[in-house]
């Protein structure tokens, strides 16, 4: 697995209720949460389970990316 040629995939999306219209389709499951606090918690748990990195798109959407 090299730094430059690997493929990074989105494993999951964690989105707050009011922002869920901002995500559609795709292969990754979408987890809908009620607020920012729960979003942090779910993202952290998913990150540890999937060994993926949590990224904040700063629009109410978190994605988990396998690097």
């Amino acid at each position: 697995m090299s730094e430059t040629s690997r493929i990074d995939t989105i494993l999951a999306v964690v989105v707050v209720e009011e922002a869920k219209a901002k995500v559609a389709g795709g292969s990754a499951p979408v987890f809908i949460v009620k607020d920012k606090e729960e979003q942090e918690k779910i993202a952290l748990i998913l990150s540890r389970i999937t060994k993926a990195m949590a990224h904040d798109l700063e629009n109410g959407v978190y994605i988990l990316v396998k690097h």
Partner: peptide, 21 residues
């Protein structure tokens, strides 16, 4: 405006999503 980007000098290192991290 990007609060979550980790920087050193003027270089973007990565994006860190989790507040605790």
């Amino acid at each position: 405006n990007y609060k979550t980007l980790l920087m050193i000098d003027e270089i973007v290192i990565m994006e860190v999503g989790l507040e605790s991290s």
